[in-house]
Design a protein around this nucleic acid. Sequence first.
DNA 1: ACGCTACATGTTGTCGGTAACATTCTCGGA
DNA 2: TCCGAGAATGTTACCGACAACATGTAGCGT
Lengths: 364, 364
Amino acid sequence: MSGTLGANAGPAQTPTGAATKAPARSPEPGVEAKPATIYDVARVAGVSHQTVSRFLKGYAGIRPETRERVAQALDAVDYRPNLTARSLTTGRSHRIGALTHEIDQVGPSKIAQGASAAAREAGYLLDIITLDMSNRSAIANAVSLVQQHDLAGVLALASTDEMTRAFEKTRFRVPAFIAVEADDVVGEHRSELSSVGFPALVDHLAGLGHRSFLHIAGPTTWSAARNRVRAYEEAIEVRGLNSVGIVHGDWSARSGYDAVKSLSGEVRATAVVAANDQMALGAMLALSQLGLQVPRDVSVTGVDDIPEAEFFAPPLTTLRVDFLAQGRAAVAELLARVNGETAPSFPVLASELVVRASTGPAPV
Amino acid sequence: MSGTLGANAGPAQTPTGAATKAPARSPEPGVEAKPATIYDVARVAGVSHQTVSRFLKGYAGIRPETRERVAQALDAVDYRPNLTARSLTTGRSHRIGALTHEIDQVGPSKIAQGASAAAREAGYLLDIITLDMSNRSAIANAVSLVQQHDLAGVLALASTDEMTRAFEKTRFRVPAFIAVEADDVVGEHRSELSSVGFPALVDHLAGLGHRSFLHIAGPTTWSAARNRVRAYEEAIEVRGLNSVGIVHGDWSARSGYDAVKSLSGEVRATAVVAANDQMALGAMLALSQLGLQVPRDVSVTGVDDIPEAEFFAPPLTTLRVDFLAQGRAAVAELLARVNGETAPSFPVLASELVVRASTGPAPV
DNA sequence: ACGCTACATGTTGTCGGTAACATTCTCGGA
DNA sequence: TCCGAGAATGTTACCGACAACATGTAGCGT
């Protein structure tokens, strides 16, 4: 060892004599056989590996000259820390898990996107774990997976009670767990529907003369669905309006369609408030098949404002939810908790009313 | 250390002093302070840690009696391998990265879901890395991230040329890289549009009397978009039909809308073939705003068959693509490659024509 | 000039596994 | 009864980082 002391730029001799498998990939510049370690850096800089480690951690007590040498060596060998090794000693990984039901749903997937970005900015990676949130063994399996990969924390992007419970029980080597969109379950309030959301929506409809409403809700096991039902009921009640019913769907367009069809042709409401845009879409199709025009006969609203909502026929009036921000906020809180900082309380994200053509004056 | 020799069930002292917020959760049984290692197992079983390791690897040469003791100890302490430690020595992790542009797009997110499931079944975790595929520094950043977290392989769920190139260059500690949906770029054919896809679609339209077509394509930098353009052109040409143009969008509904609007009211085609369902949706809205009825005046088709397509107004005729299967296949190939097995050639997935109300007889 | 104390840096141990090498055990054959 | 070979098992080294402790060096007062 200790060959060239200079910038290790000699004929690319493999560091630890390794490079077992790669077909000796000719000494192309820039393609090292194996990434450099702090020991390599130390050798090049002529210091001990610990000094390198100190430098990397930003330790102040290093002589300027030494500091400079290390910095140059670091650069010369293009050092990248091995996070695996670091995790082993520190016991803390740089990955956070994201549990989600089906990421093809706009909400969860957008949240995941925001979370992923926020995580990366903090030097973390987001591990996606999709699972059937109502399958007990699938959940157990996921828990086990999370433990083995020792994640720094876990985020539930879309949470059902079953899943939340499973993780409540096993707080074991999983330092933190946050359920996005869950409030009543976890005990902390993190509904994305600010108090101005549904009220604003209902105000809008009431202003158009609507008095009787129908709510197409999500599955009762989803806390997000319950939040929205509660918000809906409150908004209706406070204004002395009339709810002719709440039908539960499963977030899909089909379920919204079925919900309306299940009314057996008798739609007694003049306004249909769906808990998400997909169900609103399905509802609109069903209504038109019943011979009811939107918004002439019935007004329809959604929640989420998925990118397509603006192009539905007719374009959908909906509550815009900033999923990206939600994902970011969740990660921020998780990391704060992991680092033992005072967790910045999860911000209650405001949802903005977006009025489009699917709502209009109530029929006389 | 080395306190209790029994099942390590001493009073649950918090692991790393963490658990800042939880109120010190009393020494509940079943909540171990720290997961057991092979050394713990060895101690309990009265053998060396290496014997335990051998057992775990399925080494045959272990006396039945010893084997039994180890098995029991394993069970007693509820051993879970520490994948971090394993990775450090073996140099191979149990995670694969998934690069994606925006996972809120149905294609990529569904692929991710399939990939995630397949990965988990193989004991791997899927790390999502969202990035702006056209931002060079973001790509470099991602590459660096991938290296540090030493992933077993990388999957590009949606690939642009820029990104593919970035990874081509840096095959350094990233054993495998697969670009889903890319064929011309990577050199291997993996288009998800089987040869029966577009031809079947065009046959359907031609059968309805359509002769002049308009294609709304995806961004040219996306290989998936290019595949579809090529498939479209071939299908049109082979049948001696007429393409009045190809307009490029960005996959979004808005871009489909804009594409039609950009025709300045002059839609000379009787059939609009969009490269995905969202753009088809936007196109339909724009057409109706131009006073053209779908499908009476113009037929419109999409690709993907997103769950909502069935509920568009009118329901969309489209080519169903099995993204989940694509994700699974990609993972299978990646893992095979990682394990040095003969990579099962990536199956060319068939896309099925789904006829709905957005297509009808060509106007006379 | 001497010794003490900060400060700068080096050495060794550790995390939890795997790999290579070392040692013990067992059994058949001389 | 003893030897040697192979099987079963144990010991030590190592992956790449961090942490604790050890050592060396400079600066200061006296």
